[in-house]
């Protein structure tokens, strides 16, 4: 792996009016690495990934992509830079078929006479191969996304992002609404994607999910980075403690 980080965010500040959502967050992301961004609700995780994906622009701070200072002014810029975001619940459209979802916005077309139409045959066959690779048994490419389980939907969304050339994959709480079995499937998918050399940014507030796949852990609290640790350097208790602001959970319960 090269030493040069794929993406670096330095001292990112973001204010909404009087509210400082981010007060100097720094993180660097390397290819083939799963970087977990942990933090309690309101820690600034969402704001931070929205800056990475171009939805928000930082008030101050620097973003480097491949060592070059870059401005991400809108989601299109982020996508062009190879940054793909899989949102927790806004990833796929349940009423549409798996195939139509997978190709949405990037439909393969062919000419029939003067008319340009979708090339369903090609779309469907590529889809089936891709689904096979990530271990989803599709009965039929035209079955609706709604017939898949929550974990399968996340997996399809991740597969789609990677298929369309994502180099940095941001996953917003992909496991928070899932059961144990489905969670393990999604974590397996993350593992697989990472092995392909994709950088994964895994946002979660579940420490055990993060520890299962993470190479690096950055904890956010009240808009600031509390620090970054490598896998093996830190254990469950310490991470949990950092997230809760060094108050033991048992203590909080009182």
């Amino acid at each position: 792996m090269s030493d040069l980080p794929l993406m670096e965010l330095k001292d990112i500040h973001k204010s909404f009016g009087n509210v400082d959502a981010l007060k100097g967050v720094s993180i660097s992301i390397n290819a083939g690495e799963c970087h977990c961004l942990l933090g309690d609700n309101g820690a600034g995780k969402s704001t931070f990934i929205k800056i990475m994906s171009g939805v928000h622009q930082p008030t101050s701070g620097q973003i480097n992509i491949n060592g070059k200072e870059t401005e991400i002014n809108n989601p299109r810029d982020a996508i062009d830079a190879g940054i793909a975001t899989v949102y927790q619940d806004l990833a796929l459209i349940p009423l549409m078929s798996v195939s139509r979802n997978f190709w949405l916005g990037r439909e393969l077309t062919k000419k029939v006479g003067p008319i340009t139409v979708m090339d369903f045959e090609k779309c469907n066959s590529i889809l089936m191969t891709e689904m096979d690779k990530i271990g989803i048994q599709l009965r039929d490419p035209t079955q609706s996304i709604g017939t898949l389980s929550g974990g399968e939907r996340q997996t399809v969304a991740i597969a789609r992002a990677v298929f369309f050339g994502a180099k940095i994959l941001i996953l917003d709480e992909p496991t928070s609404a899932l059961g144990v079995y489905q969670t393990s499937n999604v974590l397996k998918t993350i593992e697989r994607v990472r092995e392909k050399g994709v950088a994964v940014v895994f946002i979660s507030h579940n420490v055990s999910h993060a520890l299962a796949v993470g190479d690096k852990f950055t904890v956010l609290s009240r808009g600031e980075t509390l620090g970054t640790a490598k896998s093996g350097e830190i254990d469950f208790q310490e991470l949990q403690a950092m997230m809760s602001g060094h108050k033991e959970l048992s203590e909080l319960k009182k």
């Binding site: 806004l90 990833a91 796929l92 459209i93 349940p94 009423l95 139509r100 190709w103 949405l104 979708m118």
Partner: peptide, 15 residues
């Protein structure tokens, strides 16, 4: 495909 998507989930389609 975009017509279906716009009605199915406008926000997801925009993303």
């Amino acid at each position: 495909n975009w017509i279906y998507a716009a009605g199915g989930d406008a926000q997801a389609a925009r993303h």
